[in-house]
Amino acid sequence: MAETGLFIYGIVPSDVEPTSDAVGVGDPPGEIVAIRHGELAALASEVGLEEPMGRPADLTAYQMLLDGTAAVAPVLPVRFGTVVTGPDAVEDLLGAHHDRFAAALEEFEDRVQYTVHGRFDEQAVISEILAANPSAAALAEQVRGRPEAESREQRIRLGEMIGQVVELSREAENRELIDALTPYAVVHAPRQPSHELDAVNVAFLVRTDHEDDFVRVVEDFAEQRRDLIRMRLLGPLAPYDFVDADQLVG
C-alpha cells in the first residue's frame, strides 16, 4: 500500500470550514480538511508520498484554495510542497507556534493582497527612447539593414543604452505607482522584475473596505499609460508576499 502524507496549504482561524467543492493537489485531487488545534486550523489534503508535486495543476489548486479562502477569512499561506506525516504532526506545528500564528492571522483580518504588474510595449518604448536620445537613434540607424555579424558592436551598445533607459523608467514607474496607491494600501512589497521589459511589479496589502478605491486608482494609472505599458491587476489574493512561508514550518 502506498504511503501517504498531508499536504498543508495554509493556516486559518479554527472556525473556517472548507467548502464542499474545494479540491486539492494530486491526481486525483485530495479532499480538503481542516485540522484544528486551539484557535487555529490548517487546511490540508492527503497525498501519496511517492506522488510527484509541482505540476501546473497542483500549483493552480494550491493558489485557488488559498485565494478563495482569503476572500472570506485571514489565511497564512504555507510554502508550496510542504508535506507532513499526518494529523499529529500538524497539531504539533499549530501547538508549538499557536500564539505567533494567531497574532499573524489577526493582522491579516479583512486584508487581501493585490499585485500590480505591467510590461512595457517593446515597440512603443524603443520608439520613445530613440525619439528622446539622439545617440541611440544614430546607433539604430547604423544597424538598420546591416547583417548582425557586421554590426555586432553597435547592436550591443544600442541594447545597453535601451536597457539602461528601461531600468531607469522602471524605477520611476514603480515609485509613481507606490505613491499613487499608498493612501489605499496598508503596506507594499516591491517584487523583482520577471522580464527585461517589466515596467512595474509591486504587491500591496489592501484593507477590504479600500478595495474599490484601490482598484479605481490602478485603473487610472493604467489608462494614463495604455499606449506604453500593458498593465495587469491580480487579486484579491492570499497574502503571499507578506508572509514568510518558510518560517511557518521552520
Score class of each variant (00 low, 15 high):
29 P>D: 11
29 P>I: 10
30 G>C: 10
30 G>L: 07
31 E>P: 01
32 I>T: 07
32 I>W: 02
34 A>W: 09
35 I>V: 15
35 I>L: 14
36 R>S: 13
36 R>V: 06
38 G>V: 10
38 G>L: 09
38 G>Q: 05
38 G>H: 08
38 G>I: 13
39 E>K: 09
39 E>V: 09
40 L>W: 05
40 L>H: 07
41 A>S: 11
42 A>P: 00
43 L>E: 07
44 A>F: 01
44 A>G: 06
45 S>T: 10
45 S>D: 08
45 S>W: 03
47 V>A: 00
47 V>F: 05
48 G>A: 11
48 G>V: 07
48 G>E: 10
48 G>C: 07
49 L>N: 06
50 E>H: 06
51 E>T: 12
52 P>S: 06
53 M>S: 06
53 M>P: 00
54 G>R: 05
54 G>W: 05
54 G>I: 08
54 G>T: 07
57 A>S: 11
57 A>I: 08
59 L>T: 06
61 A>I: 08
61 A>M: 08
61 A>G: 01
62 Y>H: 14
62 Y>F: 13
63 Q>T: 09
64 M>A: 11
65 L>W: 04
66 L>F: 07
68 G>S: 11
68 G>Y: 06
70 A>N: 03
72 V>H: 14
72 V>S: 13
72 V>E: 12
72 V>R: 14
73 A>W: 06
74 P>H: 09
75 V>R: 02
75 V>F: 08
75 V>T: 11
76 L>I: 12
76 L>K: 02
77 P>N: 11
78 V>R: 02
78 V>P: 00
78 V>I: 13
79 R>Y: 08
79 R>I: 04
80 F>T: 04
80 F>M: 09
80 F>C: 14
80 F>L: 09
80 F>A: 09
81 G>K: 10
81 G>F: 13
83 V>W: 12
83 V>R: 10
84 V>L: 12
85 T>C: 08
85 T>A: 15
86 G>Q: 08
86 G>H: 14
86 G>N: 12
87 P>S: 14
89 A>C: 14
89 A>I: 14
89 A>D: 12
91 E>N: 02
91 E>A: 04
91 E>P: 00
92 D>C: 06
92 D>Q: 15
94 L>C: 04
94 L>T: 07
94 L>Y: 05
94 L>E: 00
94 L>K: 01
96 A>W: 13
98 H>C: 04
99 D>W: 03
101 F>A: 00
101 F>W: 06
102 A>D: 12
102 A>V: 11
102 A>C: 11
102 A>K: 07
103 A>I: 02
104 A>M: 15
105 L>D: 08
107 E>Y: 13
107 E>K: 12
108 F>E: 00
109 E>N: 05
109 E>L: 13
109 E>T: 15
110 D>S: 04
110 D>G: 03
110 D>I: 01
111 R>D: 02
111 R>N: 00
